[in-house]
């Protein structure tokens, strides 16, 4: 695998023209426009000596409902890696165009809480495409290291709808989700996607306004999946140790503005949690938090 160390986090705003370019008919034949490759390039992007900007962390904590602590929210390194994800996807040899990709699963494994003062090394690579009943998937593999030790890992599975999925056998149907007791109701304002978008740099038009979302086939702007996961972990704050794995599957998108119900329960398999539409019960997110032995005691 080739490794490329970047001198700084790429500005994501500048990458959007490239991200959107494949949507314009004809452009995808140009060499620098993503969507041409058949396989995911075996390339690892590395950012070294990354430090956390306390002001950005505070904005992130506020929008997600975390408290500003001496350690980072477990979803925060995703922010630090987002620029690398975009960079990887907007290369001409990347087989998928970024806009229109759907984040369907996210697993974060935290061996030890990262401190706000840690100097981090962020490494990002992507897996080869795999067939999926609804299209093709690949995953971003992200690591956060401190002094060479991997303390945090993430697997973000992305789906490209359509193309190449028809010939696979349907995987076993989704295991029935447990009926969890409701714990809280969250009222999500219409501007949530814009607010989280400005903090995270993820300004995918489907999150910003109803109008831009409609261009991509959604009725209204939808909440970011990683915001929803972060909001869940914030709601569970204090109820899990510093070493854990949090796996979520993103189901139906949350339309903004909206009202959703957060549910959770302690099960033998771990702490189960879910987000449902308050009125209809439509599933938005299903998650499990498994406690791990600490890397160091």
């Amino acid at each position: 695998m080739s490794e490329q160390t970047l001198s700084g986090s790429p500005g994501t705003l500048a990458l959007y023209p490239r991200a959107v370019a494949p949507l314009i008919p004809g452009l995808s034949r140009l060499p620098f426009v993503p969507g041409r490759g058949k396989t995911v390039p075996t390339r690892e992007l590395v950012l070294e000596d990354v430090s956390v900007d306390p002001e950005h962390l505070a904005r992130y904590a506020r929008v997600c409902g975390f408290r500003l602590a001496a350690t980072l929210p477990a979803t925060y390194p995703h922010m630090l890696a987002f620029g690398l994800h975009m960079k990887l996807m907007t290369r001409g040899d990347f087989p998928f165009a970024p806009v229109g990709l759907v984040h369907i699963e996210n697993t974060i494994t935290q061996r030890q809480a990262l401190r706000t003062t840690d100097r981090l090394e962020i490494r990002v690579s992507a897996t080869q495409p795999e067939p999926h009943p609804k299209g093709r998937t690949f995953a971003f593999l992200t690591e956060a290291r401190v002094d060479g030790e991997v303390l945090w890992e993430e697997r973000s599975t992305m789906l490209r709808r359509g193309g190449g999925g028809g010939d696979v056998r349907r995987p076993p149907s989704r295991p029935k989700q447990p009926d969890l007791p409701a714990r809280a109701q969250w009222t999500l304002p219409g501007g949530l996607g814009r607010r989280y978008g400005s903090v995270s740099g993820d300004r995918n038009p489907i999150h910003l306004t109803g109008l831009t979302a409609r261009l991509f086939g959604f009725d209204s702007a939808i909440a970011h999946g990683m915001w929803t996961k972060a909001r869940c972990l914030a709601a569970l704050e204090g109820r899990y140790p510093t070493a854990f794995r949090a796996e979520v599957a993103f189901r139906q998108p949350i339309k903004l503005p909206g009202r959703v119900t957060f549910a959770s329960e302690e099960r033998p398999s771990g702490l189960r949690f879910a987000v449902r539409d308050t009125k209809r019960g439509t599933p938005h997110l299903d998650g499990t938090l498994t406690r791990l032995e600490r890397a160091h005691t």
Partner: peptide, 17 residues
């Protein structure tokens, strides 16, 4: 340094320690 921290943030940090 703590310009962005609320009372709850700081009390929680001291309590967690």
């Amino acid at each position: 340094t703590y310009a962005e921290a609320s009372n709850q943030d700081m009390l929680a940090a001291a309590l967690e320690g």
